[in-house]
């Protein structure tokens, strides 16, 4: 198996640590091997970009890391929890409390205003409406949307929508945030401003970001860039000087 993870000190804690993760879809002749033995580490405070051509397994990998899919084999520990050891209910609860999501198409709920959209993760975690909205208000203010609390997604620009989506990903203070093509629907300047926010988030203590992207313009924001192809991580490079890190 190809080893693409960093050589880590034995006592080092990882936000994500995958070893030999495989995942396939279908059965028999229709079986497709989407992940072919993935080794990946993501450290707290790190922004890791996952890049590669369509169909290379990026989405499957983040689905496994976020406990949406179960791997077929291998081990995947996220925030110190072994995902394979959790049942479906525990995975759902873990996802709700510990992981934040930012999607390509923002995926805000169109009928809810910005404040309500950002409150959703807290409400899912059982918080009261009042405390959820207080916290959501604070987070929206941090991304300069304190004046657009009652705006519906359709009344916001693409950049504003993505900032609402980022607020939603942050509101419950998750330790891992997964962003799926966060800038692909944004113009260059807006994309950069969104990445600046995400970069700042990654620097928060104990928090890690995984960003799936095709957009080379934002590679400079990465601490490391993992290149995937055909279900494998073929290369991990430093985000700044693009040197191989393993």
């Amino acid at each position: 198996m190809e080893s693409t993870h960093n050589a880590a000190a034995p006592e080092e804690q990882f936000a994500v640590q995958c070893r030999g993760v495989t995942k396939s879809y279908g059965t028999g002749d229709a079986r497709v091997l989407a992940l072919r033995g993935i080794d990946l580490d993501v450290r707290p405070g790190e922004l890791l970009m996952l890049v590669g051509p369509s169909g290379c397994g990026k989405t499957t990998l983040i689905s496994v890391i976020t406990a949406i899919l179960s791997q077929d084999s291998g081990n995947c520990e996220v925030l110190g929890r072994d995902l394979q050891a959790m049942n479906k209910k525990e995975r759902t609860r873990f996802r709700g409390s510990s992981i934040g999501f930012v999607f390509q198409f923002f995926n805000l709920l169109p009928a809810l205003n910005a404040l309500e959209n950002v409150s959703v993760p807290l409400l899912i975690n059982g918080q009261s409406r009042g405390s959820a909205e207080t916290r959501a208000r604070e987070v929206l203010a941090e991304v300069d949307l304190g004046t657009r609390l009652r705006s519906l997604p359709a009344q916001l620009s693409g950049g504003q929508q993505q900032r609402v989506a980022i607020s939603r990903a942050l509101v419950h203070d998750p330790k891992l945030i997964v962003c799926d093509e966060p800038t692909s629907n944004l113009d260059h300047d807006t994309g950069r401003s969104v990445m600046t926010i995400l970069r700042g988030i990654a620097k928060s203590p104990g928090r890690a970001l995984i960003v799936v992207t095709h957009d080379p313009r934002i590679f400079e924001f990465a601490d490391r860039i993992a290149h995937m192809d055909d279900g494998k991580i073929i290369d991990v490079v430093d985000g700044k000087n693009r040197e191989r890190t393993q």
């Binding site: 369509s54 169909g55 990026k58 989405t59 983040i62 689905s63 949406i68 899919l69 999501f101 999607f103 390509q104 198409f105 995926n107 799926d180 093509e181 692909s184 799936v212």
Partner: peptide, 8 residues
């Protein structure tokens, strides 16, 4: 399957 929300 909640993974349908991802772009890929």
């Amino acid at each position: 399957e909640p993974g349908v929300v991802f772009a890929g």
